[in-house]
Computed example of a mutant assay.
Amino acid sequence: MTDRKDELAANLARVESRIAAACAAAGRGRDEVTLIVVTKTYPADDVRILSGLGVRHVAENRDQDAAPKAAECADLSLAWHFVGQLQTNKVRSVVGYADFVQSVDRVRLVTSLSREAVRAGREIGCLIQVAFDAGDSGRGERGGVAPGGVAELAELIARSEGLRLGGLMTVAPLTGEYAGRERAAFERLVDLSTDLRRTYPAANMVSAGMSADLEQAVAAGATHVRVGSAVLGVRPGLG
Rank of each mutant, 00 (worst) to 15 (best):
V94M: 14
F100T: 05
I49K: 06
A230F: 10
R106S: 01
V101R: 03
R142S: 11
V190Q: 07
V227Q: 12
A44L: 02
R30V: 05
G228T: 05
A59M: 07
R142N: 12
A146I: 01
T111G: 10
H57F: 14
S77R: 15
P173T: 09
L238E: 14
S114I: 09
Y97F: 15
A217L: 07
E123G: 07
R188F: 08
L78R: 11
A134V: 07
C126K: 09
A151T: 02
A70W: 05
P236E: 02
R181L: 04
H57K: 01
L127P: 10
R62E: 02
A230Q: 09
G138Q: 00
R28Y: 05
G166H: 06
R92D: 07
S207G: 08
V145T: 15
V95H: 09
A117P: 12
D136W: 09
D6Q: 15
L168G: 12
A10W: 03
A212F: 10
P201L: 07
G52T: 08
A154Y: 08
M205D: 00
C73I: 04
A217D: 05
G84T: 05
V234W: 11
K69P: 08
G209A: 07
V15G: 08
I19N: 01
L53T: 06
N11E: 00
P173L: 02
N11R: 11
Y42S: 00
T39Y: 13
A185K: 03
L163V: 06
D63F: 12
G239I: 08
V15I: 13
E152K: 10
V95Y: 08
E60T: 12
V47R: 09
A67E: 06
A22W: 04
H224Q: 08
H81K: 11
S93H: 09
R106T: 01
A208N: 07
P147H: 04
R139Y: 14
V94C: 12
V58E: 07
D3N: 04
Y200H: 15
E16Q: 15
D46K: 11
E161P: 12
T175Y: 14
A154E: 01
A117T: 12
T175C: 02
F82G: 02
L192W: 00
L238Q: 07
T88A: 13
E177I: 09
E60F: 10
R139V: 07
R48S: 11
N61R: 10
N61T: 06
G140H: 14
A151N: 02
E141H: 14
A179K: 06
R164T: 05
A179L: 06
M205E: 03
L76C: 03
Q87N: 13
T175E: 11
L196W: 09
V130I: 00
P68D: 00
D45E: 15
L232N: 14
T223R: 01
Y178F: 14
E215N: 15
E155T: 14
R188A: 14
T175L: 01
V104G: 05
S112H: 06
T39S: 15
G149L: 04
D75A: 13
G121I: 14
A20Y: 00
M210G: 06
M210Q: 12
A212W: 03
R106I: 04
A184E: 15
V15W: 09
G180N: 08
V94I: 07
C73T: 11
E32V: 03
G52S: 11
